[in-house]
Design a binder for these strands. Structure first.
Lengths: 232, 232
DNA sequence: CGTGCGTTTGAGTGAATTCAACGGCTGTGG
DNA sequence: CCACAGCCGTTGAATTCACTCAAACGCACG
């Protein structure tokens, strides 16, 4: 595909903590470090709201962020979780179509959209970078779409665990920053079904759950099989 | 895969019919008309398959195209329908993640990806155009995601009818090119549920169905209300 | 006039939901 | 140090919505 090294000065910002922040590897990160402001968000704090002007781009430094839509009867659909290193807030129009909230106490970098886009002449590499980002989000959305289509609760949970496994720091146990309710709203299930399904997977020996937000995958193949029914 | 008449020979094809092809208006269209080959696809013909190299871009001229994934147990998820004027086949990687098939006898324009991208020097307007396209697909995927989340059959059908209404020629009746099975696989329902729900909507006077693939919306507000529960 | 396909309709089942109660951790204040 | 409140998560029982299985219908085509 396309990629190139950024044209500028990564040197300054010492990236600090935030597990899994290998952000410095990709080019957009540099722009963020140069131009971005770092802000702290308490758990459940709104980072931007639906229909607000989309003047800024964001990058998760630590913690986690969810983007979601609320329906008038209280149902909520979470469109994505963003983990350290992930970019979010990029929109096709000038307004956000989802709201974004901190899943837990988090830090994000913020940069004006115009600043990023103006960085190089007319449409320098930055446009292409944004394109790649958008492509990546598209792929993510398509995966999520598949997840929400005709799938059983078990298949959804399996897919979720595998996805989080891929994205989190490659360690033994999964540390989930989000509540059961968040997971439910992400997977299109109820909190009870999420809980029951996890318990069932634990009883079957596929996973173990030392504490509710830490999940150890014991039988990865089993999860794969539940999920792999995708794509013959 | 499939065969088409030699690349080249664009001049011959007079744009011909294909309702809703106002393709000439946007810039990418020009490239397609200049460089594309026009091919015919019989109903259910595969245009490209999952995991095939993504060397071409496509534009629907007439008919309709579905992109989908098949699961090993036969379940199918349709990711999108493309109608005349729509672009498809643009991928983040070098391989298609979905397969594409003609919903009904259709015509599509095909152009080599490299040809399109090479059109202007390094990253001329074309990159930006592609970005816009990708953004548009992202928005579409996000909408579809919402559709598949915790929604009742009625809400899904309502959303589907509204979506098709938006996208089809702005006439009175909706002419659906796809089968009930296609609709079901798009909405994450079974064919029976789709049928029942449509019948129910007809009995309630919200729509009427003179023949199975033609639907007249009688009470648009009712459909909106079923759908609008979205986004407070 | 059959044959085949797509669609509709019916009856019974089942997976996930709703409603409701309980259990367990955490932090606060007596 | 313990008691208690407030969450969050789990578990149970009953319900419901969509699914599965099955049959019939209508239409196009040979």
């Amino acid at each position: 595909m396309l990629h190139w090294r950024s044209e500028a000065v990564p040197g300054a910002g010492s990236p600090s903590a935030g597990r899994g922040v290998d952000a410095e590897s990709d080019p957009a990160a540099d722009a963020f470090q140069m131009m971005g402001a770092r802000i702290k968000c308490d758990r459940n704090a709104e980072i931007f709201g639906e229909n607000e002007p989309a003047d800024y781009l964001y990058r998760v430094v630590s913690g986690a962020v969810r983007v979601c839509k609320l329906m008038s009867d209280g149902r909520r659909q979470i469109g994505a979780f963003y983990l350290p290193g992930d970019l979010f807030g990029l929109e096709a129009d000038d307004f956000h179509r989802f709201s974004a909230e901190a899943v837990c106490d988090s830090e994000v970098l913020v940069v004006r959209r115009t600043a990023l886009l103006a960085r190089s002449p007319v449409n320098g590499p930055t446009i292409a970078e944004m394109w790649v980002q958008t492509m990546s989000h598209l792929r993510q959305a398509q995966n999520h779409m598949l997840l929400l289509g005709r799938k059983t609760a078990q298949e959804r949970i399996a897919a979720f665990l595998l996805e989080m496994g891929e994205r989190s720091s490659r360690s033994g146990a999964l540390e989930l920053p989000m509540s059961r309710q968040d997971i439910a709203d992400y997977l299109g299930l109820t909190i009870e079904t999420v809980s029951r399904t996890l318990t069932q997977l634990e009883r079957e020996g596929v996973i173990s759950i030392p504490v509710s937000r830490r999940i150890v995958v014991r039988d990865r193949a089993a999860l794969d099989e539940m999920n792999d029914r995708l794509a013959a």
